[in-house]
């Protein structure tokens, strides 16, 4: 039984070994895109804005950038990379011929995507520290578990999308219908209070909103309101996504 609990580890390790070979460009990619957004908008747009919620716009933007960077990393890993392994390279099929089960394979993918996205979160956190964009250093350490939960959430959801994708093009639907709206409505660029009431009510349900509700106060130096609720929401979305993913993938590969 103990063995059953860690059976996914060789799958995680396989992905880690591949990543290690390309770690430098991968880390750069993780960092460059969100950094450009944060610094470009933070300095460029921020220069035109008065303080947002009492802090410079760049400081305000940091938490959203962290959350969305983690989301992107987990999403890309569970869509494009996992799809390559599942559908194109037949890596999953090869593993299923060993004692490992589909659940082991997918747990390995889930935890790998979570780990990789945590690394994206850490990269942004380093910048936040370096530029002194935080209110209270001790509180920023709590961003690590927040990044972990956020990564877990979007890895679970991503695997569910992966399970029903006939090809790479299909992922555009998920980006257009889920990821982009979350970036625009979830509070990355402005406080949700700026939205009309009905739209803010919708946005409150989005997973990314929960992540930012946790991350933003932690960056700016206060303890988040309803922290447990937001954490449970992220956990719930991730677990629901994963259990759906497992059922759909079983139907796809093992019928």
């Amino acid at each position: 039984m103990i063995e059953g609990l860690t059976a996914w580890f060789p799958v995680w390790r396989r992905n880690f070994l591949v990543w290690k070979k390309l770690a430098a460009p991968s880390l750069l990619g993780n960092l460059a895109d969100p950094m450009l957004y944060m610094l470009g908008l933070g300095y460029g747009l921020g220069g035109l804005l008065p303080a947002v919620e009492g802090v410079p716009y760049l400081n305000f933007l940091a938490a959203g950038t962290l959350a969305y960077s983690v989301m992107n990393s987990a999403t890309f890993e569970t869509l494009y990379s996992a799809f390559s392994r599942m559908h194109v390279q037949k890596t999953w099929e090869a593993i299923l011929n060993t004692p490992l089960t589909l659940k082991d394979v997918m747990l390995g993918e889930l935890f790998w995507a979570t780990s990789k996205s945590l690394l994206s979160g850490i990269a942004i956190l380093l910048v936040v520290w370096a530029l002194g964009l935080y209110g209270d250093f001790a509180l920023t350490l709590a961003l690590l578990p927040v990044a972990l939960l956020t990564g877990f959430c979007f890895a679970g959801l991503g695997l569910a999308v992966n399970a029903v994708s006939p090809n790479y093009d299909f992922f555009l639907y998920y980006f257009t219908l889920a990821i982009t709206p979350m970036i625009l409505l979830g509070g990355v660029f402005y406080p949700p209070s700026a939205l009309p009431v009905w739209l803010a009510a919708v946005a409150a349900w989005l997973p990314l909103t929960h992540a930012i509700e946790l991350a933003r106060p932690l960056v700016l130096g206060s303890i988040p309101d309803s922290a447990l609720l937001h954490a449970l929401a992220l956990l719930g979305y991730g677990m629901a996504g994963f259990s759906l993913a497992l059922r759909l993938t079983r139907r796809r590969l093992l019928k």
């Binding site: 390790r13 070994l17 390279q89 090869a94 060993t98 004692p99």
Partner: peptide, 20 residues
């Protein structure tokens, strides 16, 4: 279904780990 990201040796090593 060989792992295109790995060398010959790494393929064997990684596959062996799936057997514990």
């Amino acid at each position: 279904s060989l792992d295109p990201d790995f060398t010959v040796r790494e393929n064997l090593l990684t596959y062996g780990r799936y057997f514990g």
